[in-house]
Amino acid sequence: MLIVNSDIAQSIRGYGARDYPNETCGAMLGCDGAEGREVRALFPLTNRRDDSPRNRFSITAEDFRAAERAAREQGLELVGWYHSHPDHPARPSEYDREHAWPWYSYVIVSVASGEACDMTSWQLSDDRSAFQTEEIAWAIPPGTIKR
């Protein structure tokens, strides 16, 4: 289960809408706990696919290393990646599967006519054959409960 608070979810939707009609992309920083995998912060990245940014995204090895450093500096782990599907459902494509890695959470937000809508999360099976749905638990941001 992927635990995403409303601030994080809003940010992913916002990046998706901001970068429409191109695909947005970035890293998710967080940690694995007893309740599931919690996303604590985002590390937005530049989509390096200049040739077809409307239906492709690419994160270079250098950007990967920068995201990993950012996670380390915050005492977190690089737990996954988010990207948008402009005018396309929030379901992974065959291209997504071919290029995916196991273990990571892959969040996809659908952006229809510039407006972010569905958000889903997926994980690649260990044998690389398919993506499996990862349930998202929507949480409230830390510090918003008054005691």
Partner: peptide, 10 residues
């Protein structure tokens, strides 16, 4: 070091 890629198109 992984590169990460994907996209909506099949």
């Amino acid at each position: 070091v992984p590169s990460i890629a994907g996209g909506a198109k099949i």
